[in-house]
Amino acid sequence: MGRKLTSDTTVNETTQGRSRAWVWTVLAIVAFVLGIFLVQSGWWDSNHSVFAQAVVSGLLIGGVYGLVAMGLSLVFGVLDIINFAHGALMTIGIYASYLLFQEYGVDPYISLLITVPLLFVVGMGIQHFAINPVMTAPVHNQLLLTLGIAIMIENILLVVFTGTPRSIELPYARESFDLGFVTLDFPLKVFGAVVSMPKLIAFVMAIVLALVLYVLIQRTWLGSAIRASAQQPEGAELVGIDINRIYMITFGIGAAAAGAAGTLVMPFLFVSPTAGATFNIIAFVVVVLGGMGSVPGALVGGLIIGLTQEMSQIFVSGSSKFLSVFVVFILVLLFRPQGIFGKAHR
C-alpha cells in the first residue's frame, strides 16, 4: 500500500494528463449520446422532475459523504489504517448533538462547537491508547482493532440509549428567510425538486469544512508536518517532527470530521446506535474513489457516489441503491485504484 498525500508536485504529469483527458472525453461522449437518446424517446418530458430530484438529493447527500470520507481518507493516507471505527465515531457525534438538543435545547449547528472538539479529544485518546501500540502491526490487526473499538462504541450507545430509533424536528425547518435579494421559502423548490433545509445546511457546511481542512493540510505548518509524516515517517522524525503527536492529531482531526458529519446529519436521520455504520462503508468507497489522503478527492468522490446512488434508482427500479455504489467501487479498484486525484502507484 502506498503512503502518499497530495502535494503540488506531480509524477508523470504528461501521461497522467493524457489518460485523464481520454477518460473525460469518453464520459462526455457517453453522456451526450445518452442525453440525446433520452430526450428523443420522450423519457425526459415525463421524468425530468424525478431526474432533478435525484440530482439534487444525490449532490446534497454526496456532500455529507464527502465530509465523512475526508476524515477517513486523512487517517488512511497518514496512518495507513483502515479505520472501521469511523462510522461509530460519527454516531457519537450524532448522539452528542441529539442529547444537547433534547436535554438543553442547544441548536444542532451550534452544538458543532461542542461535538467537534469532543470527537477530536476522543480520537486523540483512541490513537494514543489503542492504535499507537499496533502502528507496526500488519494491516489486518489494525483493521480488527478499529473493528473492536467500533463494536464497543456502538454497544455502549445501545446500553445507554437503547436501540429505539429517535428523531428530532428542527423548529425553523419550515420557515422563510429573507436574504434581501431573495426570499428562501423552506422546503425549497429547485427545478421541481424539493430541498429540505437540514440537508441544504449539511451540504453547505460540508463544503465549508472541506475548505477549512484543505487549507489546514496544505497551507499551515501543522499540515506540512502531517504531510511529511505521511510521505516519509523516518525523514519527518529526523527533522524534528514528533511523529506520534502528529499521528494523534491526525486521528483527532479525522474523528472530528466524523463528529461534524454526525452532527450535520442528525436533524434528518433516524438516530440509532448503528446510524453511522452505513456511512462508514460508503466512506470507504469514496476514499478509494477520491484517492487516499486527498481532501478534494474525498469531496468530489462523495458527490459522485451520492449522484450514483440516487440516479441508479431512476434507471433500475426495485434494486437497492447501494448495489450501484459497490459496482462503481469494484470498477475503481480494478481500473484506477489510486483514485481520481491520486497519483499512480503500486
Partner: peptide, 22 residues
C-alpha cells in the same frame, strides 16, 4: 439484562487481545 453489554465486553477483549497478543 443490559442489552449490548456482552458485545461491549467482547469488543474490549478483542481490542486488548490485538494489542497484547497480536
Amino acid at each position: 439484562g443490559a442489552n449490548g453489554l456482552d458485545q461491549v465486553l467482547f469488543g474490549l477483549i478483542l481490542v486488548v487481545m490485538i494489542i497484547r497478543a497480536p
